[in-house]
């Protein structure tokens, strides 16, 4: 690992605070987006099926 990369991950000794905060942002936004996208996909599919029937 290069020194710059290590510095990046260590966050000046605050890795334990910075990374969880950003990680949680990723988890929350990601989960919301995924759930919304999946629900829309399912709704579109169900509607298309009912049209075919």
């Amino acid at each position: 690992m290069t020194e710059r990369a290590r510095d990046f991950f260590e966050m000046g000794g605050y890795a334990l605070y910075v990374w969880p905060a950003w990680g949680l942002a990723l988890v929350i936004l990601g989960a919301l987006a995924l759930a919304a996208h999946r629900a829309r996909q399912a709704a579109r599919q169900a509607l298309a099926e009912s049209e075919r029937a």
């Binding site: 996208h37 709704a43 509607l47």
Partner: peptide, 15 residues
């Protein structure tokens, strides 16, 4: 996300 969720709701209602 609000657009997506609203569309889902409207499609479900239509169905």
């Amino acid at each position: 996300i609000v657009c997506v969720r609203l569309e889902t709701e409207l499609l479900t209602r239509k169905l």
